[in-house]
Design a protein around this nucleic acid. Sequence first.
DNA 1: TTGTACGCGTTATCAC
DNA 2: GTGATAACGCGTACAA
Lengths: 335, 335
Amino acid sequence: MAHTLEEIARLSGVSRSTVSRVINGDVRVAAATRERVAAIVEREGYRPNRTAQSLASGRSNVLGVVIPMAADGVLADPYFSRLLHGIAREADGRDQFVMLSLAEAGFIHRIDEVARRGMVDGVVFSGSHASDPFADRLVESGTIFVNVGRSDNPQVSYVDNDNVSSARQATAHLLRLGRRRVATITGPLFATVSQDRLTGYREALEQFGVRYDEELVFESDFTEAGGRVGMRRLLEHRPDAVFAASDRMAAGALNELRAALVAVPDDVALVGFDDIPLAQQMEPPLTTVRQNAEQLGAAAVALLLDLIDNPSESGRRIILPSELVVRSSCGAGLG
Amino acid sequence: MAHTLEEIARLSGVSRSTVSRVINGDVRVAAATRERVAAIVEREGYRPNRTAQSLASGRSNVLGVVIPMAADGVLADPYFSRLLHGIAREADGRDQFVMLSLAEAGFIHRIDEVARRGMVDGVVFSGSHASDPFADRLVESGTIFVNVGRSDNPQVSYVDNDNVSSARQATAHLLRLGRRRVATITGPLFATVSQDRLTGYREALEQFGVRYDEELVFESDFTEAGGRVGMRRLLEHRPDAVFAASDRMAAGALNELRAALVAVPDDVALVGFDDIPLAQQMEPPLTTVRQNAEQLGAAAVALLLDLIDNPSESGRRIILPSELVVRSSCGAGLG
DNA sequence: TTGTACGCGTTATCAC
DNA sequence: GTGATAACGCGTACAA
C-alpha cells in the first residue's frame, strides 16, 4: 500500500509532478503515461493526502456548518434535521465535506476555531437574530459565509424562506373564511423569522381592514409547551382563529383548545407553519405553510460555493417561496 | 493582522520555534519570552493554520461521523438527532471537530474519502448491520473507528445499548401482568438492534415458560407506517399484548388498534422502545424503554479518542444500560 | 532557554 | 510532455 506521491512516482518510473497531474486530471500528459500511472495508483489503492492538498492548494473543500443550540435539543426540531440534511446532501453532491459545529451557549470561541484559516473554505451559519454578534464576527474575520435566515447586516449573504408573504397568505386565508378575531402566537421576537411572520400577519390584517390588536398577539418560543401556554392566555380574549408561527406551537395550542373544550375549527380555526410530519396526523389535520428546509440548506451550500469562487461579491440574497397547505384545521374544505 | 508563525516571530524578535512553543504551551520557554510573545499573538489575533498543524503533527483533531441514510429522512428519527447531538457535544468538550457524512446509498466512495489519511483521526460509524461491508472496509483500510451498535467483527470496537436485556425486561413486564399471547413487531432483522430486541423477547418468553409462536412475530421497519401494517396482521392472531421494537412502530400499532376499536391496554397491552418525546403524549401514554442516544454518542466519542491514543487496542465494547419506563399502555398502574 | 534545519505530502512555476 | 524545485505553514529533533 503506497502512501505518498513520491512512492507512486518511483513505482511508475516518473516524477511526482506527473503523478500529481494524473491524479488531478491535467490534460498535458501523454495518454500512455497516464494509463500506466493510473493503473498503479489503482493497484496500490493510493489516495492523496487531503491535508497536504489543502495546504498546498489553499483550498480544503470543507464547508463549516454552525448551528447555535439556543434551546436544548434544538436538533429535535425537524426543521434543523431537514436543513442539515439538505446541506449535507448538496455538499456531498458537490464533493464538499461538512464540518459540523453544534454550538452551545458561549460558543464564540468555536466560531473563531471554525473560521480559522485552512480548516474550511466557508461557513453556513444558521443564525436567527437580525443582528448577530457571531455573524458580525464572521464578516470581521473575513470568513466567507452565508446565513440561513435574514440578516440586517448588508454585508452578509443569506438564504431565507419568504416568511412575510407566507404568513400574510396564511392569515389572509383565515380572514377570507370570515374570521375576524384572528390571534397569533409568534416565535421569540429577537428572531427574524418571528418578526417576519408577525409582519405578514399584520399585513394581512391591514389588507382586510381589520384592526391590529395587541391582545391577540402572544410571543412564545416555537415549542409545543410554549404554544400551549400562549393559547391559554389568548383564550381570555376570545379569538375565532389562531395563526401559530410554528407547527409545534400549533400542536400545543390544539392540545390546550381540546382541554378547554373548544371545537377546532368550528369555534377556533387554526393555521400553523412548517408542515412537520405531525401536522397531517393532528386531529383535525393542520393547515400550515410548507417550507422546504432541505431546499434551504441546499441553496445555502450552492450560494456559499458561489461565494467561495467569487469572493468579491457580497450581500447576496436568495428567497425561497413557501406554499400554503390547506387541510381542515382552518375550517376550509379540502382544496 | 499577522498570518504566519514567521511574522509573529519577526514581530516579537524570536524564532519561529519559540513562537510555536508558546502557542503549544511548551514549558521550556522563559516566562518573560512567553509573555512577550503571547501578548503579540493576542494583539495580532494570530491563529495557527490548522491544516499546516495537521500536516506537520500528523493529527487533525477532527473526528469523522458517518451515518448511513438507508431510508429517506433518517435524520427525522429522533434517535439520530440525539445521537448526533451527543457526539457533537462530547467532541466539542474535548476540542475535537466533527466531520459529518450523511451517507446516501452507494456511498462506499465517501467512506474512502473520509478514511483518507490526514482528514480525520478516526471515525464514528453508525452501522446497523451485524456484518457491515463498510465497517469491514474501515478496518481493512486501517482506519481507527468505533461502531455505534453491535458488530460481529471481533476487530471492531463498538458502543451499544443493552438491547437484549432491555427487551427481555419489557416483555417480561407484559408477562408478569398476566399477558400470555404477547406479540412483537420487530425492526428489520438485518439490523443488530432488531435481532437483539427479538432475542430479548424470546428470552422473556422462555423465562416465563411461554411457547415462542412465529405467528406472533412480525418483521417491520421501525417506522410508524410499518408498525401500523404489522399490527393489522398480528391482530388476526389475537394477541393480548404487543412489544414494538420502536416507539414509532408502537405509535402506528396504536393507531391501528384504535381504528380496529381494540382497547389499549384492556384488550391489548402495548410496550415500545426508545422513549421518544411522543411516547408520553400518546393516548394512553406509552410504556417504553428509555435509551439514551446522547449518552451513546458521547461514549462513542470517548472510546474513539481513547483508541486514537492507544491504537493497539481493538475490539473494545461498551454497553450502556437502558431503563423501562412504565406508563399506562401496558396496563400496569404507574410505578 | 533558544535557534537551526529538516520533514510533513501536495501543488504550482518554471525550465527543458 | 516531463521533471526539478520552490512554496504552503507548522512541528520537532538536534545543536548551541
